[in-house]
Amino acid sequence: MNTAKDTILKVDNLKLQFSSNGQTLNALNGISFSIRRGETFGFVGESGCGKSTTSRAILRLLADNAKITDGTIYYNETDLLKLSEKDLRKIRGKEIGMIFQDPMTALNPVLTIRKQIFEQLRDTKLSSKEKEIVAIEIMNKVGIPLPEKRLNEYIFQYSGGMRQRAMIAITLAGNPKLLIADEPTTALDVTIQDQIIKLLNHVKEDFGVSILLITHDLGVVGRMCDRVAVMYAGYIVEMADTYTLFSAPRHPYTKGLMDALPKLPQEQTRNEEMKPIPGALPSLSDLPQGCPFVSRCQLHQTLCQDQLPTMQEISPGHFARCHYFHKLEGCTGLINCTKG
């Protein structure tokens, strides 16, 4: 459907395990997805589903007890898993940049913002005057007022929203083609979150980057993503373009997440009460043999207990990992199907 040229990142059958206290946690169980140039791809799921682990596996920013047991991660034509640590360093920051939830821990507190931007520009052969110009331009683009003055400041001198902007500026200075944003707005208040979402959408156009967004918030997905993958217990359970997924979810977990989200008055498409998903996430050290969602699923039958469903293409570009996806028909999601 899309040629290799359109694809910036292609992850295939990625498996990853953590070992802790003699237990093996199956954190990722065969993750496959690809990100196209210029799109925002979202990973949504609850804590422990593996969405952050996936993003860290791409740059191999993993804890010592993590082990990638299978799979490939192609960035353009290079398999990142085969790169040496030295070659990987040429990718980190320069080809793939990362922004985190908390700038206060992600940025160096004893370096000025200028030093940290210059650090990103160290391989560019620019004179320091030119670097200054680039830095000011970036600061302007991310909406930090008085950049000449604020470049000299440290991260703690910035306020909440500005910290996030500074981190985005520093990451963008490395001129990455792919931006991994791990819960970039989670710690922020709604008004600030709104600003940062709009900034990221703007940055995507302005700098021509692709974004991999990790979030637990369906609202943020709706505002930012072109396509989205829903994760559960180390599996991608559903993947589609945002509109399709939000209007016609075909995996009971996706539907469950949407039903569990309290709606605002203007969003109530159908008169449906908020419904929790019963039970809790299965233990990653002891995943069921069949479908990982079986114990919480309304649709489950004996087949689900015995056999892990495969990813099936329901309609072009819409995949779901469920034996009984056809039981979820019509517009049962958050929004109406009629394209407006």
Binding site: V190, T191, Q193, D194, Q195, I197, K198, N201, H202, D217, L218, G219, V220, V221, G222, R223, C225, T242, Y243, F246, L261, L264, E267, L334, I335, K339, G340
Partner: peptide, 15 residues
């Protein structure tokens, strides 16, 4: 400011 779940509503001016 609340992110709307409707992907069709992508306004670009912060509230």
């Amino acid at each position: 400011s609340l992110p709307s779940v409707d992907p069709r509503k992508k306004s670009s001016v912060p509230a």
